[in-house]
Design a protein around this nucleic acid. Structure first.
Lengths: 153, 153
DNA sequence: CTATGTGCAAATCCTTTGCAATCCA
DNA sequence: TGGATTGCAAAGGATTTGCACATAG
C-alpha cells in the first residue's frame, strides 16, 4: 500500500500539489475500502476516526483534487450522491461494471471488461473517441429474485 | 400521439390516479421532445408556455408519478440533475445508449441494443435477473476530437 | 362532500464557496 | 514570509414537503 501512496504523492508533486497529512488519511480510507463505493460523507466519517478534526469541506476538496489527478473516479448509482473509488478512469483497474439490485440495494462488481469489442464498433460507427465507459445493470440479485419468486413482498 | 396519451391515461386510472390537464401538458412536452434529455426545470419551462400557471413542484411530482408507473425513466449524465425520457424501463424503446462528449457536452444516442449477449453472460455468471441496463461511453465526438488533434484548446 | 391534485414558500439534502486561521516549503 | 491548505459557517442548486386552496368525481 505504501507504494501506491508514494506514487500518488509523486503524481501530486508533479502537478504542484502536495499529499498533506489530511489528504493522506483520505487516500488511505479510499485504499482500505477499494471494494466499497463510499460517498463523501461516508469517507468523512471514516477519516474522522483517525483524524477527528478534519472538515467535510476538506474531504470534498480532496476528492475533487484526486479526480483532477485521475487518482480516483466517481460513480453515481442514482441515489442522489456521488460515490468514489480508487483508480483513475484511464487506469487498468477501472474496467469493471456494476450490478445494482433493486431489491436490497446491493452492488455487485463485474470484474471483467466486457466492452472491448463494443467500444471498437462504436468508435467506428460514430467516429467517437472513447476514453471511458460506464455500464450498470439493474435487476435482482440471486437472493432477491428468489424472494420474489416465492411470492414474497 | 393521442393513442399514447390515452394509453397513459388508462395506465394511471388502473392505479387510482388521473391524467389531469396539468399532467397531460407535462406528458405532451415529454412526447414532443423524445430525442432531447430534458431536466425537470427544462420541462417546467416548456410546460409554462402552454400552461403558465403550473408550479415547479407539480412537475417534480408528476415526473415522480410517471416514474412509478413506468411511463418515463430517468438518466443521469453526471451534471448534477436528472434528465427524463419518455418510455419506461421495461418498454421496447428503451434500449439505446449514450455517448457523452467531454469536449462540447453533446449527447449522442446509440439506437441499437448492443448488450443482449452480454446480458445473457452476466445473468448466467451471477444469477442476477436483469431488468434494465444503462451504458454510457465518455470521450470526444468527431468534431472535438479533430479540434484536439489540431492542437486547439 | 371527500379525496386527489396543485401553487407557493419553506425545508432538505448534497456539495461548493468565502474567509480567516494555519501550515509548510 | 507567502502561497497552499483547512475548518467553519454560510451559500448554492436541485429536489421535496407542508399547508391551505382548488378541483373533480
Amino acid at each position: 500500500m505504501q507504494k501506491v501512496i508514494d506514487e500518488v504523492e509523486e503524481k501530486l508533486r508533479a502537478g504542484d500539489s502536495r499529499l498533506t497529512p489530511r489528504r493522506e488519511h483520505i487516500l488511505r480510507v479510499l485504499l482500505e475500502n477499494k471494494d466499497k463505493h463510499l460517498s463523501a460523507e461516508e469517507i468523512y466519517n471514516l477519516v474522522k476516526q483517525k483524524a477527528p478534526d478534519v472538515g467535510l469541506a476538506t474531504v470534498y476538496r480532496t476528492l475533487e483534487l484526486f479526480l483532477d489527478f485521475d487518482i480516483i473516479h466517481s460513480i453515481d448509482f442514482g441515489d442522489g450522491r456521488k460515490r468514489y473509488e480508487f483508480g483513475g478512469e484511464r487506469g487498468e483497474g477501472h474496467h469493471h461494471h456494476h450490478l445494482v439490485c433493486n431489491g436490497c440495494g446491493k452492488i455487485i462488481e463485474v470484474n471483467e471488461d466486457l466492452l472491448e469489442d463494443l467500444e471498437k464498433r462504436v468508435t467506428e460507427a460514430y467516429n467517437f473517441v472513447i476514453t471511458d465507459h460506464e455500464l450498470k445493470f439493474f435487476g435482482y440479485c440471486k437472493e432477491c429474485a428468489a424472494k420474489k419468486a416465492e411470492g414474497g413482498r
